[in-house]
Design a protein around this nucleic acid. Structure first.
Length: 138
DNA sequence: GCCAACGTTGGC
DNA sequence: GCCAACGTTGGC
């Protein structure tokens, strides 16, 4: 199983909205970046991801699970844009802020720090564990 | 609201 | 295929 990180501006699509979708989940639409799309193409059902609030909050607030393989983005007429479906799994007991991630030397190589603008990012196993630990999971 | 970083577009 | 112009993202 692979790990990922999904960024969203809470005014557009928040963790609360994601949770309201329940087990059915929701397509992760609106991505218009090749690297982010390619990451979604690499996802398998059952993969897990962090849900990150950009702009407002700037913290990892929850865990999602990929519940639908990549398919055309229903919000785009352009067939190049595809997305997966994700469902909320659980809250971060203690949200992990960008500041805390940057302050942790173990997370210096995280895409969240290194590739700031990439909206769908891969997360390494060690990074996943470390962020979960910081967030009060594990 | 500003602006730096970075991705995309389009003229040549 | 290069690169300047432009648009967008996202931290501050």
């Amino acid at each position: 199983m692979a790990y990922w990180l999904f960024k969203s501006e809470p005014f557009k699509w928040s963790w609360e909205m994601q949770k309201a979708k329940g087990a059915a989940g929701q397509e992760w639409d609106g991505v218009r970046n090749y690297q982010a799309r390619n990451n979604m193409r690499a996802m398998q059902v059952g993969d897990r991801g962090f849900f990150y609030h950009s702009n407002e909050g700037k913290e990892i607030v929850g865990i999602v699970e990929v519940c639908g393989l990549v398919h055309p983005d229903s919000t785009s007429a352009d067939p190049r844009w595809e997305c997966v479906d994700v469902r909320a799994v659980e809250d971060m007991p203690k949200p992990v802020s960008l500041e805390a991630v940057k302050a942790n030397p173990k997370l210096a190589e995280m895409a969240l720090v290194k590739s700031m603008r990439l909206s769908v990012q891969p997360v390494r196993d060690e990074e996943w564990d470390e962020v979960c630990r910081m967030g009060g999971l594990l």
